[in-house]
Simulated scan of single mutants.
Amino acid sequence: MTYLALSTAFLAVAALGGTLAAIVTRRRPDAAALGLTALALLLLTAVFDTVMIASGLFHYSPDHLAGVHIGLAPIEDFAYPVAAVLLLPALWTALRSRRTRRDETLRTEEGSA
């Protein structure tokens, strides 16, 4: 299995999970916040992966890479920050929505008692 195939599967799962969480909660995270977060994470990934690869902390087998690099970081490394941007805000929104509903239920029960 190539790193690109693994990254694609990982991104598909994150996109599906993020979409399902957004549908269930009927809320979407703010697009501007997602864009800024993605930009920051991609920039940090480019810088720190390049530093870690240059210092010899890890390396990739070139046989399994697509061949596109940003700095020294292979393009496949950027799937993980993108997946985080897709999945984590939707998960956060879903958990927050669940907590809000629970708190409203508790307040209703306390008010009727």
Rank of each mutant, 00 (worst) to 15 (best):
H64W: 00
L20K: 08
A94N: 09
A113S: 10
L36D: 06
R107F: 12
A32Y: 11
A113T: 01
A14Q: 06
A15P: 06
D103K: 14
M1C: 07
G35W: 01
A5I: 08
P81N: 03
T105A: 07
L57P: 01
S7V: 04
E104Q: 15
T19P: 04
H64Q: 13
L20E: 09
R107W: 14
S112R: 11
L88R: 10
P62H: 02
L91I: 08
A94Y: 14
E110K: 09
S112A: 10
A9D: 01
L91K: 00
A15C: 14
G35V: 10
A73Y: 04
R98S: 12
L44V: 04
V68L: 13
D30W: 14
A83R: 07
V68N: 04
A83Q: 03
G111F: 07
D103W: 11
T93N: 10
D77H: 08
L4I: 00
L91Q: 01
P29T: 10
V68P: 01
G56S: 02
V13Q: 06
S97F: 14
V68D: 01
A113K: 06
E110N: 03
A84T: 10
L57Q: 13
E109K: 05
L57V: 05
L95Q: 05
I53W: 05
L72Y: 00
R27N: 06
I53R: 04
D30E: 06
D77Q: 06
S55D: 14
E104W: 12
A66T: 08
A38K: 03
S7Y: 12
L86I: 12
T100L: 15
A84M: 10
S7F: 00
T50V: 00
V13L: 11
Y60P: 09
W92F: 09
L41G: 00
L39D: 02
L36V: 13
L36H: 10
A84I: 15
P29F: 07
T93L: 14
W92Q: 09
L106F: 08
V85I: 15
A90E: 06
R96K: 08
T50E: 07
A73T: 05
D63G: 08
Y80M: 13
A14E: 00
